[in-house]
Simulated scan of single mutants.
Amino acid sequence: MSMKQCLFILSQYLLPHHLLSRLIGCAAECRAAWFKNRLIGWFARQYQVDMNEAQVEDLSAYAHFNDFFTRALKEGARPLDQTPGAILSPADGAISQLGPIEQGRIFQAKGHSFSVLELLGGDAQRAAPFMGGDFATVYLSPKDYHRVHMPLAGTLREMVYVPGRLFSVNQTTAENVPELFARNERVVCLFDSERGPMAVVLVGAMIVASIETVWAGLVTPPRRQLKSVRYDEAARGPIHLEKGAELGRFKLGSTAIVLFAPHQVEWNAGLASGTPVRMGEALALPRT
């Protein structure tokens, strides 16, 4: 690592993650026109955000920065791949890693992996269906569309909020912070799908003010402790989402990880670390 990278990694351990994220979250909700218009305009220029595909193209029309950051797209901007059985990318971004889950661990970056058990909140019964299965990790950059969608149609079985740190998520931290995705705060969404159990994990990061789902809204318990909510027949009643339907969104952040049980999916051969993807593109086909 360069000295700059070493200092950046050191700062990740020293910074007050949640305090910093709360402060930035307050700024991102500020409605004062002079402030939010300058912030949104600067961000759009800095990260070359393509507003031509946004449902609302006028930057000044957004109520606050988070409203802009979680902007909706025009109808048809993300057509869904129509290949029968195709497993879709849940988000815009780039493939961080994808492949098999080996010995209960997911590859993170050179020399680093993390535990499926820890990623899903430490419950062995919850993690068991994915042992020996497959994963795909999609990193969302600041300029990307920040809503997360269903890779397949599914019925929600359980949502788990897992408290944790808020390390920045990028190539440098992936290569140098052990167990990064199993250490950061995250929301685990477990579904029953046509390919069996499917998990979509929304991972927070530094300055990620919040994670929302379409069925629960803002998912940040008053006390940052692990919380599981069942959505089966005996609990709250089933919630079914079609393939490509919005699942949730990030307010300033981060990464989506999709997990499948063994022998269910075959990742497209052209995908590798760093491959850009768009929501609705096919990541995989059913394994025969």
Rank of each mutant, 00 (worst) to 15 (best):
G164L: 12
I24T: 07
A27T: 08
F8R: 11
W267H: 08
G280H: 09
F181E: 02
D58G: 05
S96T: 05
V169N: 05
G99V: 01
H146S: 13
F130A: 07
T173S: 12
V188C: 04
H18D: 12
G93Y: 04
Q125V: 12
L23S: 05
E246A: 12
E266K: 11
R31E: 13
Y139R: 10
E233I: 07
V177M: 10
K243A: 11
L117M: 10
F8L: 10
L119Y: 06
G122M: 12
R236N: 15
A124T: 12
V162D: 04
G253L: 03
Q46R: 15
G93A: 07
V229K: 08
Q97F: 01
V138C: 12
A284R: 04
P84T: 09
A127H: 10
L88A: 02
G76Q: 12
I257N: 08
G133V: 05
P262T: 08
V148E: 04
G248S: 03
A209I: 00
F181I: 04
N52A: 15
V200P: 00
L117R: 14
N37A: 11
L152D: 06
I24S: 10
Q46T: 13
I95F: 03
A27P: 00
L259N: 06
Q97S: 15
R126W: 09
E158I: 04
A109C: 06
A28Y: 01
E246P: 00
V265Q: 11
V148R: 05
E185Q: 04
L156A: 02
I239M: 12
P197I: 12
R78V: 00
S141T: 15
V201W: 10
A234M: 08
T83P: 01
S273R: 15
M150P: 01
K4T: 13
E118P: 00
A54F: 15
Y145D: 03
L226G: 06
I40S: 09
L19D: 03
V258L: 04
F43N: 12
I40F: 13
G244W: 06
L226C: 08
M3N: 10
Q46S: 15
R223F: 02
E185I: 00
S115E: 09
V214D: 04
H64S: 03
R183C: 03
R147D: 00
L252F: 13
R71W: 10
D67G: 06
A284V: 00
E102R: 15
E57F: 02
A63R: 15
M159A: 07
N37D: 14
S60G: 05
F250S: 07
A109M: 09
D50V: 11
S60H: 14
K110M: 03
P151S: 13
G76M: 06
A284Q: 05
A33L: 08
S96P: 00
A174W: 03
E75S: 15
G122H: 12
V265G: 08
R22E: 05
M159L: 05
Y145N: 00
V169L: 07
A109I: 00
R186T: 01
S228Y: 01
H149R: 09
F35V: 07
E29Y: 06
I239R: 13
K251H: 14
L15H: 02
A234G: 11
L247S: 03
R147P: 00
L10M: 08
P84M: 05
S2R: 13
Q46W: 14
G237S: 05
A234W: 07
Y139A: 08
V160Q: 01
Q108W: 03
A136Q: 10
L140M: 15
R45I: 13
R71C: 08
R45F: 10
V265A: 07
L19Y: 05
R22K: 04
